[in-house]
Amino acid sequence: MDREKPELNEERRTFIKKVLKGTIAGSLLLVIPLRADDLETSEQIPEHIPEQIPGIRGSEYDMSRHRFVFIVDITRCIGCGSCCVADKREYNVPDGNYRTWVERYIKDIDENIYVDCPNGGLDGYQKPREDIDRPVRDTFFVPKLCNMCEDPSCVQVCPVGATFRSPDGFVLIDSERCIGCAYCIQACPYSVRFLNPVTHTAEKCSWCYHRVRRGLLPVCVHVCPAKARKFGDLNDKESEVYKILSGPGVITVLKRDMGNSPSLYYKGARREVI
C-alpha cells in the first residue's frame, strides 16, 4: 500500500501539467465565472468538449451534405442498459415511456423464442430468466430506438405537420405544433413513439439531434461501454459506419417489408428479431 501513494501523486502531477498545457482554456471556462453572454455560447457550443463526429463544427452546417446512419451491433451488446439510463436522464423521460430500450431474446433448444424487456432495460439485466423450462441455446440483446426512416409513416400521417423529416435526414417532432392525437404512435411500425404524460405531445428518440449538431455523438452511443452502438455520417468515407456498411458483414434493418427504409441498421441480428 505504501508504494501506491508516490505513484499516484506522480500521476496526479503529470495530469495537472497536461491539463494546464492542453486544455487550459477549457478548464478555466468551468472554474472562472463568466459573463452571461459568454456562458450562453459556451453552453450552446461546448468547444472545450472534443469533437466526436468530424466535419460538423467549424464551417456553417450544411444540412444537405450529411447522411447520418446508426448501427447497432447485436454481437457486442451486453445488455447493461447504460444507453437507456443515459437517454432517460438526457431527456427526463417520464417513467413508463421509452425513447430507447434494450430487449433480451432467449432461444431454447426447441427454437422457441422468449423476449422480455423489464422496465425497458433501465435496470439492466441482473438475473437470468427463470420461467424457461427447456435448456437455453442462445441469448442476445437487441437495443431499439428510432429507425429514422427515409419514408416515415409518422410523418405521413401527422395531420398538422408537427413531425417531419429534416433535410439532414432526422425525423423530428415540433412540440409547439403537436396536438397530441397519437396518430403517429399508431402508424409507427417500430413503436418508438409515446405521448409524453407531462407535455401531452408525441415524443420519440431524435438520435440526439442537439448533440449531433454540436459535433457530439448521441448520448447512448457515447455511454455504451461495449461499442455496440455506432453513429456517423455515411458521406464521410473515413467514418466507422461507412466502413461497416460498405464492408462484407451482414447488415439488416427491422421490418423491411414495411417499406419505410430505416437508417437504423443492425449488425448480427438473428432472423427472429422483430
Binding site: P46, N92, S166, L172, E176
Partner: peptide, 17 residues
C-alpha cells in the same frame, strides 16, 4: 423547429469537463 431541436440543452457533457 429544426433549430429549436438543435438548441436543446445538453444534459450529458462527456468525460472531458
Amino acid at each position: 423547429a429544426i433549430q429549436e431541436e438543435a438548441d436543446r440543452d445538453m444534459r450529458h457533457k462527456t468525460n472531458t469537463p
